[in-house]
Design a protein around this nucleic acid. Structure first.
Lengths: 314, 314
DNA sequence: TTGAAAGCGCTAACAG
DNA sequence: CTGTTAGCGCTTTCAA
């Protein structure tokens, strides 16, 4: 049994003809060692884990990027979605369940907690607010939000709403700040009635958008903290009989593939999601080799993409 | 130790106060049982696996659909990409490595083999050619390809090329057949010089497209077996100085989000990828409950979506 | 109701 | 070079 293990794994100390014999039988039987059982003993598996709450458009893009960066390496990629029930702390749970055994390193996407203790290297994409001593990869949310809001102002809008995202994410807070800064810079007041909380959840966005757009002094433009929220606002606007962009301009954030597929195509702030994933993978790889990466807090640039949902106010 | 296990898993036969004490310590310590170790003994994990070659746009859409269908269930979702090195048979390898232990059921996306023996229920999406005794979910490739080709004919094209996909997939063969049938029905010849093999791989598509478009009697339209191929053809056309759709019409297949994001937006045959994933998940779930699903071979409809890459020949 | 023992499939250490 | 033994972290008997 031990000999078979050595032969299969190419360990030193087995007679060449024994190796041949073992491998031929292995091939004949179609045997594959159980990843689980071997990981249990050896602690090294050659598998990298990506922990996500759901497979929604954003994490799907991240996954594509991680996969590309890893395709040249010898690592397999395992994506795990285990947010069931526990809205918070899913990544802690997933991590304890997988790490130490199944995966050699992990990437968390939009985690709900600041710190997690693990025995494996860990990188966070779009990290939690608060002082993370974790390596992180994110985009320039402040700059993107600022640019989006300023663009709306330059179009002539002065009543500009904002639907905020998950307030526990650093990126969401920065988008909120970027929005406010742009208003202030333009000498425009920040009306609390024009700031809704969406939490990146469609139901919450719907409620907030419905309320904001039913006001007599409704905004003529809304900036949403992500595309999913913006897409939901488009739906609400349609139901309310508001024409986009005639009666209401909308800008999202992310530029997930669904944004450009919408009708009209969504104006948004593009963040390089696949690059985010690829950079996180590269950082993780170097961490796993015991190196200290040059930068452990990457911030990638964003870019405004104007499409069909933005226009001057009527 | 055994008592803790029972308490954590809610097994019968532990004193209520013991359960309380155990759970409070568990909470305090932040303990989570290792998925790996428990799966090793108990054979049931509450995890469903999706096996993919890569995280490319098509499998990403499938994943979104599976995730949606599973979000109401108590199952966690694990996506595994392990096609490294072995271009063929990756799913057999992944499956033996994961099943019997880590996952309770699996969905294979565009598998490279007909049959695999497992001890867990298994559903194939976009299955392999050949007589599969496996439950399958796929789309109407023949109808879609036929419709796409007929549309090109109706636009006035008579020299219509085809870049084929992976010849081991049932869907690819059906798309080839649909293309030919449409030509024959219209009384048009099938010119072997206008059929290239792309295998869904960008490099192969590039070679085939380059050759086809460099001919003196080059086609005025090309139907590609999937969007990734069509997008690559657009690139090649641009390099050759051909205007799309002026000099060359292109139709893809799938309608991945990237298709509508392209410039010009890609005309394509839409297949309901997320529904494919969701249906596969539903089928798997019922299989796992020991039921016999009503239909074990689902075929979902496709629909032509005309966008910016199709026009009458110049 | 609790805890001791066996064992899931494998690999590492060591004896033969 | 080969085979025996121990044990990874858990769950499941089964005896106390």
């Amino acid at each position: 049994m031990a000999t078979v293990s050595k032969a299969v794994n190419g360990r030193y100390g087995v007679a060449p003809e024994t190796v041949d014999r073992v491998l031929s039988v292995v091939a004949e039987l179609g045997y594959e060692s159980s990843l689980i059982a071997s990981s249990m003993r050896s602690r090294r598996t050659g598998v990298i884990g990506v922990l996500v709450a759901d497979f929604e458009p954003f994490s799907a893009e991240i996954l594509k990027g991680v996969g590309q960066a890893l395709s040249a390496s010898r690592y397999d990629l395992l994506a795990y979605s285990g947010s069931h029930g526990t809205a918070e702390g899913w990544e802690r749970r997933s991590l304890s369940r997988l790490s130490g055994t199944l995966i050699d390193g992990a990437i968390m996407v939009t985690p709900t907690v600041v710190n997690v203790s693990t025995d494996v290297p860990l990188v966070a994409i779009d990290p939690h607010a608060g002082p993370a001593d974790l390596p992180t990869v994110e985009c320039d949310s402040f700059g993107g939000a600022h640019q989006a809001t300023r663009h709306l102002i330059e179009l002539g809008h002065s009543r500009i709403g904002f639907i905020a995202g998950r307030t526990d994410l650093r990126s969401s807070i920065a988008r909120d700040a970027g929005y406010r800064r742009a208003l202030v810079n333009a000498g425009l007041p920040v009306d609390p009635a024009l700031v809704g909380s969406g939490s990146y959840r469609q139901d919450a966005v719907r409620v907030a958008a419905l309320e904001m757009l039913s006001r007599l002094d409704r905004p003529t433009a809304i900036f949403a903290a992500n595309d999913i929220s913006a897409l939901e606002i488009m739906k609400v606007a349609a139901e309310l009989g508001l024409d986009v962009p005639q009666d209401l301009s909308i800008i999202g954030f992310d530029d997930v593939p669904e944004a450009s597929a919408a009708t009209p195509a969504l104006s948004t702030v593009r963040q390089p999601m696949q690059t985010l994933g690829a950079e996180a993978a590269r950082m993780l790889l170097s961490l796993m080799q015991g190196e200290t990466p040059a930068a452990t807090h990457l911030k990638l640039p964003t870019r405004l993409v104007t499409r069909g949902t933005t226009a001057p106010p009527a």
